[in-house]
């Protein structure tokens, strides 16, 4: 509150606590968005345990594992960029943001080849081959494409946010005194990472 009293006279209102609170609330909504999908996943897995088990053997654990490592590293680099900003090192902040973006691109390229292989084998939503399989297979691959696809969209949104943050850092609008935007970008990126941490075992690992 004491913060408000000092800044209300100026036109540019800056409230890092409020901004971060807003971001956390938004992250709750994202979790519920995926939460509904996790419910759908559990219901259908419970109904078709054998088909889900056989279908998940079709997924490439290696690519999934590499992508998990990539996202974990990118989460670390985005956190490092925030630390660099707290220490006032603008150049290092930008370098870490660039590394994060680069890792995101590598993730998407991997995803592209992984999806491409599936589609090449005739496995995609609504394909004749998939519809000839059992209900459990249809639902497993339906959920696989839908959930990893939605996650990929979140990766792209996260990249747009990080590019925007990068420009703001470059302009000096995000600086050592006001870097809530950078922190919020990092928070969002961690969310994207966290969702993958749940998707990976659910689709690739659980037997």
């Amino acid at each position: 509150m004491e913060h408000n009293a000092t800044t209300l006279s100026t036109h540019e209102h800056y409230d890092p606590v409020g901004a971060k609170l807003g971001m956390w609330l938004f992250i709750f909504t994202e979790m519920l968005l995926f939460g509904a999908l996790f419910i759908v996943y559990s219901v259908y897995r419970y109904r078709h345990p054998v088909e889900f088990h056989l279908a998940n053997q079709e997924l490439n654990v290696t690519i999934g594992f590499i992508n998990t490592v990539i996202l974990l590293i990118s989460s670390a680099t985005v956190a490092m960029s925030i630390t660099a900003m707290q220490k006032g090192n603008k150049k290092l902040t930008m370098i870490f943001l660039l590394i994060t973006l680069l890792l995101a691109v590598v993730f998407l390229i991997n995803k592209y080849f992984e999806w491409g292989a599936k589609i090449h084998h005739g496995i995609y939503p609504g394909s004749e081959f998939l519809l000839s399989l059992s209900h459990g297979d249809i639902l497993f691959f339906g959920l696989y494409f839908f959930m990893t696809g939605l996650h990929a969209i979140h990766i792209i949104v996260g990249m747009v946010i990080l590019i925007w943050v990068f420009v703001r850092v470059k302009q000096g609008r995000v600086n050592i005194n006001r870097y809530a935007l950078l922190e919020n970008g990092g928070l969002y990126w961690h969310l994207v990472d966290l969702i993958w941490i749940f998707l990976f075992p659910l689709f690739y690992l659980i037997h």
Partner: peptide
């Protein structure tokens, strides 16, 4: 907390 569920 409720809207995202119907959204998806």
């Amino acid at each position: 907390l409720a809207t995202p569920v119907v959204g998806i």
